[in-house]
Design a protein around this nucleic acid. Structure first.
Lengths: 204, 204
DNA sequence: CCTATATTGAACGCAGCCGTTCAGGTAATA
DNA sequence: TATTACCTGAACGGCTGCGTTCAATATAGG
């Protein structure tokens, strides 16, 4: 079922790749509405008909882009092993890695793309959320002290919100300059500290 | 200077109002790129030339809409007087009022409009941020215990982030159904509790 | 070699919005 | 009343993207 070879010339995977990359570039630069299939075809050095052949819809292209990006981030996230130690240390380590990763992948702008399309493309929002924030909170929950019980999801949600909220407000305020590595590290640490004081029993 | 009456027929303020309301409706429903001046003119039952006469640009219209909305929210926020009591009670009261207000004004969607345009219209982002999040954090800071010192801004930022983060993630995940009043109240209270445990010295 | 499919470049008609112009009617001020 | 500016409806040329079609060429498997 999986690799049914139909007769005739197969679709060129390299072209497919170029189209995806072009779509990613243009979506991030010009937004969904600002991006046309014709522009993507130009950017990918491919004919318009080919784009229609591989995807068929701008929405389908966006979906493919978001899914690919979510997979890539998750892969990188799983590859990173966290050294042993107390929860606050491990959480900080994870947070630093997560924030750096999200920045490298323009996660902020990807999220804007998704939220902008959430009304017309709810499945897209679902893909993003499942592989994005939801997955992140799961991984946080795994690093929390085991004695939190049913308060673990709440703590994970709070920490994730604090971590990502800073960048979010910066973007909303039009400040495009990213945080320094130092500022980011401090922010990650402070957020962990808030959650520690609010939720951890032993080290209060 | 302010009310210089130039001769001739003055611009009809009612028409201006209809245009603004139509713009707000369409911007929220279809986004910035999905909204055209012609559509706004239709929706406002006004000729296209009149829209150009009153505003001239789609960006100017968006700016006017956002500014009007920010003013309206701030007016309502100032009108609400908070009963005396301990900081956690006053913060909760303020939070409940704030969240209800933001929902009623579709603040979530307005913010999406702003962030989407932040790159091309940085002044818009500034208007929004100054009258929006920044103003909110100031008001929070005023309700915090006075002994926080230089940690007050940090606490205010954390609380604001926690409050608005929940709705934000719901929107990002495509869940359009709003929180129940009860769920919202619990969320506001829990966020206050986190900040209290993390920052307040006396009641720790 | 044969066949089925991909790919290309070009063109198609259609639709929407842009920003402006014009003539003709309207309403406020001096 | 005369003046001045507003408002309307319609039209303008131009642009861009849509989604499809066509003939010509290229490239895989059988």
């Amino acid at each position: 079922m999986r690799d049914e070879k139909s007769a005739g010339r197969p679709k060129d995977p390299d072209r497919r790749d170029r189209i995806l990359r072009a779509a990613r570039t243009l979506f991030l630069r010009d937004g969904f509405d600002g991006t046309s299939i014709e522009a993507i075809a130009r950017e990918a050095s491919v004919s318009k008909v080919t784009v229609y052949g591989h995807f068929g819809t701008l929405s389908a292209l966006l979906e493919a882009v978001v899914e690919a990006e979510a997979r890539a981030i998750n892969r990188a996230l799983s590859a990173h092993s966290i050294p042993d130690g107390p929860p606050e240390t491990r959480l900080t380590d994870f947070g630093l890695h997560l924030m750096a990763l999200l920045r490298r992948h323009d996660a902020q702008d990807l999220e804007h793309l998704v939220t902008a399309r959430a009304r017309d493309q709810p499945n897209l929002a679902e893909i993003y959320f499942r592989c994005g924030p939801a997955r992140g909170m799961e991984m946080i929950a795994d690093l929390l002290p085991p004695d939190l019980g049913d308060r673990a999801p709440q703590a994970a949600s709070a920490l994730f919100t604090l971590w990502s909220g800073g960048e979010h407000h910066r973007a909303a305020s039009g400040l495009r300059a990213p945080l320094t590595d130092d500022e980011m590290a401090r922010h990650v640490r402070q957020s962990v500290d808030i959650v520690r004081k609010a939720f951890f029993t032993a080290s209060r």
